[in-house]
Every structure is written in C-alpha cells, then in structure tokens.
C-alpha cells in the first residue's frame, strides 16, 4: 500500500459525510446493520457486491429472491442483504433452502455460505441437492480455512498451508469443488476469485436465471487468518496473487483444476447444461403415472 500512499493536498477533496450519501446498492442492503463484521481486506464484502450486481442484472424481483446462509464468516452474508434472509445452523443451509424453495416454488433461493459450512459439515447435503437438481443457486465462498473460529484447517485447505489445527502445515487432500459439484449433478458450475468481480457478477446472473442446481465457487482472501498464518500479507496481497496467478479457462475439465498451495488457480465457467429440476421432473413423472388423480403442489396456503 505504501507505494500508492500520497498526501492529502487539496482541501476541496474532503469527502462528503456518510450521512448524506446513499450507496446505489442500499436498496439491497440492511444499511442499519453496517459496517459489517468482516475484517479489513476480507473479500466477502466484495463478493456480496458482485452478488447484488448479478442480482440486479438478472431482472428477478427483489421480493422473490431469498438468501439462506449457514454458519461462519460467509454465513453472515444473509444478515446484510435486504431480501428475505435466513441465517441457519452449521452446514444445514442447503436442506433449509431445499424446504424453502420446494415450499414456495415461485422463489429463487440462493445459498451464500463458506467452504467449511457447505462442503465439510454440509457436504452430504450439497451432493444430494445437486443430485436431485433442486432449484438453488449456491455461492460457495472459499477462503481455505475456518475463519470465524480462528483459522482451522478445512476441506479445502491446500496441502502445505498452515492452519491453527495444522500447525506444521496441512497434509490432507483437499476437495476440488467444481469437480465435486459437477459429478454430483449440478447444471451450472463456475469458479472465480474475489478479484474477477465483473465475471463473477455475470456468472451470478447466469446462475440465478438457470433453473436447477447452480454452483459458483469464489476464492476469497482471508487476511486475518489464512494470509497472516501463512505470511502471505494482507487481503490486498492475495488479490494481487489472484491477479498474477488466475488462469481463465472456460469449459476446463473439472477433474484437472485442483488448487495447490500458492499455485495457479484455474477459473471460468466449467459447466452449463440443461436438465429438468426436481419439481419439473416430479410433476411430469407423477402426472404420467397418476393421470387425473395427480394434484400438483400449489405452494403455501393462501392468507
């Protein structure tokens, strides 16, 4: 940061007090809850911004989009969005969202949560929701560790990376999330970093408009824990690392895009295919089997 630091020369440039400023994304935010809890140079806020841009471009009605989060740093995302938003139990965001989405099929339900929440404790739910092709968009914020609890190793911690429960470095094989999602049946799979902000927003728009189970992994800088423990600098240094080491490769074979410690990160849109959703398949199937006797689920009872 020091190289760009300059003096503050022109008095006229003193910015306006915040009370008078309305951020254009305010209508999607619970502004009364700001500033948010995320650390300085954490990327989750940036990903939230991308989500809002993607949501705006999708043209979906604000009231018909619900967000569900689990537990952890990323799990707090739901609490800052002015949408119907749910902060649930650790790992259970996807089954909760499954109930919400099937309960009211008019909704577009988005799950924003972390890698530990969605892939370790919630891993079973992730693969089954993908298998069933439930109409959900999953934004999995991967910061390579359990940050909220103090930087423990998780299912995505690369081999060699240091974590508080891997004090000599991590020696477990990590998950390759896009491969996991694709092989479980997801119809849309992408990976970006918090730096690929416009491409991420575009992916989010595509995923929101895609019926079925869409999965976007977003690599996110964790300054206070992952970066500090591994002496990688600040979140800004990690953003620079992504700038220098991310390779955009749309349609890459997901089997070949493992992430190694401080090595190249392949990003892009890997899967985009069509498949009937759980409800579409169910309704068509049961109508064939039961004929006139079949009564489709009509959503929640009227007021």
């Amino acid at each position: 940061m020091s190289k760009t630091t300059t003096g503050f020369t022109n008095k006229l440039e003193i910015p306006t007090p915040r009370e008078k400023l309305h951020h254009p994304m305010d209508r999607y935010l619970r502004t009364e809850r700001f500033p948010h809890i995320w650390c300085a140079t954490c990327g989750i806020g940036t990903i939230l911004t991308a989500f809002i841009s993607g949501l705006e471009k999708s043209g979906l009605e604000q009231e018909k989009v619900a967000v569900v989060s689990g537990i952890g740093c990323s799990g707090r995302a739901a609490g800052y969005l002015r949408l119907d938003s749910f902060h649930t139990t650790h790992g259970r965001a996807i089954p909760f969202a499954t109930g919400l989405s099937l309960g009211n099929p008019e909704l577009k339900v988005v799950v924003i949560s972390g890698d530990g929440d969605l892939v370790a404790i919630g891993g079973n739910h992730l693969i089954h929701a993908a298998r069933r092709n439930i109409d959900l968009t999953i934004i999995c914020i991967n910061n390579f560790n359990y940050a909220m609890t103090g930087g423990q190793a998780g299912p995505t911690t690369p081999i060699e990376a240091n974590a508080s429960t891997a004090p000599y470095g991590c020696y477990e094989f990590p998950f390759n999330l896009p491969f996991l999602a694709e092989s479980s049946g997801a119809v849309y799979v992408a990976r970006w970093t918090a730096l690929h902000i416009r491409r991420l927003a575009k992916s989010i728009t595509e995923a929101l408009l895609k019926p079925g189970f869409s999965f976007i992994e977003v690599i996110c800088p964790c300054s206070t824990l992952y970066a500090r423990r591994n002496r990688l600098g600040t979140g800004l240094d990690l953003m620079k690392f992504y700038h220098d080491n991310a390779l955009i490769k749309h349609g890459a074979d997901t089997r070949e895009i493992d992430i190694r410690y401080q090595d190249q990160i392949v990003v892009g849109k890997f899967v985009d295919k069509d498949k009937p959703t759980f409800l579409q398949k169910r309704d068509k199937f049961l109508r064939e089997k039961l004929g006139e006797k079949f009564i489709p689920y009509k959503g929640p009872q009227p007021i």
């Binding site: 909760f96 109930g99 739910h125």
Partner: peptide, 19 residues
C-alpha cells in the same frame, strides 16, 4: 431427504415458506 439433519432443516424452511 439424505438424512434426519436435512429432514428437520427442510421442514423449517418449508414452514417459513408458508406451508
């Protein structure tokens, strides 16, 4: 569902959808 953890979570989600 895939297990009882998910079943219980799903009915809470469904209840909040209005069902």
């Amino acid at each position: 569902m895939e297990d009882e953890l998910a079943s219980m979570a799903a009915i809470i989600g469904a209840a909040w959808s209005g069902s």
